[in-house]
């Protein structure tokens, strides 16, 4: 199961010890964690979305650039002599097919300073924006389209 493999990989990276006894302990603790997760019934397709694979790597640089841009914008407005803000709430449509896609979209909205997703309601997200520009950027729907692209066709 891929969850075990990922957990054991993390354990290996973090421990940095490769003697048999410690490796054995690592295997035991990994299996223990997976057993608990199975008992709690939290293991599913969405929990460790490896199937998104490389598509998300294409999305991350764009997201990082947006985060940087938004950071500069918010920092500039916050530090300016007059607080040049016009907060507002509005809804955007999330056209992702799966819950995971919507979660990625909502989290991306929140990660970009200037917009915070407040509530997920079916296929719409209630968003609070700090400025009109941030709101309009989001309304254009570029981020929505890109996340749909990350979701891919299954």
């Amino acid at each position: 199961m891929s969850l075990s493999a990922v957990l054991f990989g993390v354990w290996l990276l973090l421990s940095g010890h490769y003697t048999p006894i410690l490796l054995g302990l690592g295997v035991i603790s990994t299996l223990f964690a997976v057993a608990i997760a199975l008992r709690m019934d939290v293991v599913d397709h969405e929990g460790h979305p490896l199937h998104l694979g490389l598509r998300i790597l294409g999305y991350l640089p764009w997201l990082m650039f947006q985060i940087l841009r938004a950071n500069l914008d918010v920092a500039r407005r916050v530090l300016g002599p007059t607080l040049a803000i016009s907060p507002r709430m509005f809804r955007v449509r999330a056209t992702q097919r799966t819950d995971l896609g919507r979660v990625i979209f909502a989290n991306s909205i929140t990660l970009t300073p200037g917009t915070v997703s407040v509530e997920l309601e079916g296929s719409e997200i209630l968003v609070h924006a700090l400025t009109a520009d941030a709101a309009n950027d989001l309304r254009e729907g570029t981020m929505n389209r890109l996340v749909v692209g990350v979701e891919g066709h299954e």
Binding site: I67, L68, N71, V74, A75, V78, L79, L83, I85, P87, M89, T110, L111, T112, P113, G114, T115, V116, V118, H128, L130
Partner: peptide, 28 residues
């Protein structure tokens, strides 16, 4: 960015706007 976000959290007028300032410190 950390200080800018900190100033924002103190300076911005209401809870929802402060979320954005906190976002600056969390990401940038």
């Amino acid at each position: 960015f950390a200080i800018a976000g900190g100033i924002g959290v103190v300076r911005l007028p209401d809870f929802y706007t402060r979320l954005h300032a906190s976002g600056v410190t969390d990401t940038g």
